[in-house]
């Protein structure tokens, strides 16, 4: 097992390096000159030459890459063009906000999808199953950004229950935990709904297969209660594919968060990225791209390792 884990970690290293090379290339194929952006109205030929030298932009590309990579390894992602702050501090500011909505949405969605998919599989091809399948299909095909807008219209405009943007109510002098929690509801709900729709489909087919297995029949013959049969005996095996799915769905979740954060004006990584793209703030774009690539690779790695842990039938 330890050999397997270390082999997988070693295999992930070239991918991570590749992601850094890719981000570096991306920035350098872009038309437009960062020096011009940095100097703005103070642009003169002498100043440009001086800044090019101090930033090391006159060195060959591969040297620039290694300098940049060295900085990256020390946690230095460079200086933002637009905010006059280190990229790292901007990212650290935004990251917790994104983590909160993504993690909560994922946990809730997983629990609910496992439950829904299992019940659907148990009542396969009944009216209930067909109804839920249609609803799932509907939400699965629904663009996240449209769903977000509709939730705002229903729960912020028509029924003025929940705030539609930001993380705190600016008009309150002392916005407490309750106010903050209220601001989280709609962003989390949007991510939750689209995730449940996809995962419940997987869970349904996985549980359907499990319910046909011999050990389920054995459990029933032993006289185990139906609830016990589904949620203990069959669930243990049918939940395995969903663990892998959790790691693999990270990119989709982060993309979803990008739209959600834009709609709800929620100050997370997605909004930071979008603002940076609009302002052509390349250090931020590069930093977030590398970070997300890293998170995705780690997610896949974790999924593989977890899978090996929970499924004793798999040996390496």
């Amino acid at each position: 097992m330890i050999a397997y884990i270390s082999r997988r970690i070693l295999e992930a290293i070239p991918t991570v390096l590749g992601v850094t090379i890719l981000s570096f290339i991306m920035i350098h194929v872009v038309p437009g000159n960062p020096i011009r952006v940095l100097l703005g109205t103070h642009y003169t030929v002498e100043r440009a030459a001086e800044l090019t030298k101090t930033l090391g932009l006159d060195k060959p590309l591969y040297v620039q890459y290694f300098v940049w990579l060295g900085d990256l390894l020390q946690g230095n992602f460079g200086q933002s063009y637009t905010y006059d702050k280190p990229v790292v501090s901007l990212m650290l500011q935004a990251l917790p906000h994104t983590i909160i909505i993504v993690v909560l949405a994922v946990l809730l969605a997983h629990l609910f999808a496992v439950f829904l998919g299992s019940v659907q599989a148990y009542f396969e091809n009944t009216k209930f199953d067909q109804f839920v399948t249609v609803i799932n299909y509907f939400f699965y095909s629904m663009p996240t950004f449209w769903l977000g807008i509709i939730l705002v219209i229903i729960f912020s405009v028509d029924l003025p229950w929940l705030p539609s943007s930001g993380i705190v109510n600016m008009q309150l002098s002392n916005p407490g935990f309750g106010d903050w929690a209220k601001h989280l509801v709609l962003p989390i709900a949007s991510l939750f709904i689209v995730s449940v729709a996809g995962w419940a489909r997987y869970m349904r087919s996985s549980m359907r297969e499990a319910l046909l297995q011999d050990y389920v029949r054995t459990a029933r013959m032993k006289g185990a209660k139906e609830f016990h049969v589904i949620f203990v005996h069959a669930l243990r095996n049918s939940i395995l594919p969903l663990i892998t799915l959790l790691g693999l769905s990270l990119p989709a979740l982060l993309s979803g968060a990008l739209f959600i954060e834009e709609i709800f004006n929620y100050p997370g990584m997605g909004l930071l990225y979008w603002d940076a793209v609009n302002a052509r703030d390349y250090p931020i774009i590069m930093g977030i791209t590398v970070f997300i690539g890293l998170v995705t690779v780690l997610g896949n790695l974790l999924a593989d390792i977890l899978y090996a842990f929970v499924d004793p039938r798999i040996s390496y």
Partner: peptide, 12 residues
Amino acid sequence: ILLAIPSIFILL
């Protein structure tokens, strides 16, 4: 490597 970055970020 290309799959490690969510497509919408590359597309943007």
